[in-house]
């Protein structure tokens, strides 16, 4: 590999006419999304760190606070599996894209359906917990639960909305390969960060 850089430059002397073709090291959309996801990971890292600090500052018998409802571990565990299945379907959609954009539509729709079911079941869980008296104001325990899970829910809903629009464009054959890769990457982020949040908040 030694010396290829200078050889490359010499070769360019033969082709001096510049073109507008970009030499994309990582495709634009994918690189932009990687950077965005990096910033998002840090957002969740900040939330989890805050949670860990406040939790560690509490006396052992006050966490979770006595008299407050417990989080439904099994129910959310099932929900976590739903979300992971959604991520798997999205991955399958990415594989299918190589065979043709329309081939990718059914797995992506399945993925969106599973994702929507996840959000709906989490909403149902929230409604139950609110009914049992766990609210944002009742204790730091409740505050952090709704904050962290809610932040994830906002990301999931936003991703579902964008992916729905993207699916329409996918069906019409207007979605480019790289844009599709970038959007799938964001959904993988939403899917893969959830088990970590589940482990930290529920267990």
């Amino acid at each position: 590999m030694a010396g290829t850089m200078s050889e490359k430059r010499d070769l360019r002397l033969i082709h001096p006419a510049p073109t507008r073709e970009q030499r994309q090291i990582v495709p634009n959309e994918v690189l932009g999304m990687i950077l965005f996801i990096g910033a998002e990971v840090m957002l969740f890292a900040g939330l989890i760190s805050a949670y860990a600090v406040v939790r560690a500052g509490m006396p052992a018998d006050a966490w979770p606070p006595p008299g407050q409802p417990r989080l439904p571990i099994a129910f959310t565990g099932f929900n976590t599996l739903l979300l992971l299945a959604s991520g798997g379907a999205m991955w399958f959609g990415g594989r299918k894209f190589a065979e043709g954009a329309d081939k990718a539509v059914p797995p992506v729709l399945a993925s969106l359906g599973l994702g929507a079911a996840f959000v709906a079941l989490q909403g149902y869980e929230w409604a139950n917990l609110l009914g049992e008296g766990l609210s944002m104001q009742s204790s730091p325990y409740g505050s952090f639960f709704y904050l962290i899970v809610g932040t994830h829910a906002v990301h999931a809903v936003a991703a579902l909305l964008v992916l729905s629009v993207a699916t329409l464009r996918l069906r019409a054959g207007e979605l480019t390969e790289h844009a599709f890769t970038a959007l799938r990457a964001f959904w993988y982020f939403v899917v893969l960060i959830w088990p970590f949040l589940y482990w930290q908040v529920y267990l």
Partner: peptide, 20 residues
Amino acid sequence: GPLMAGAVMLAFDQNLGTHF
């Protein structure tokens, strides 16, 4: 990212009555 997390928590403390 962490400051955005903190800003959301502070806004909740100011307006929603949380105690982060």
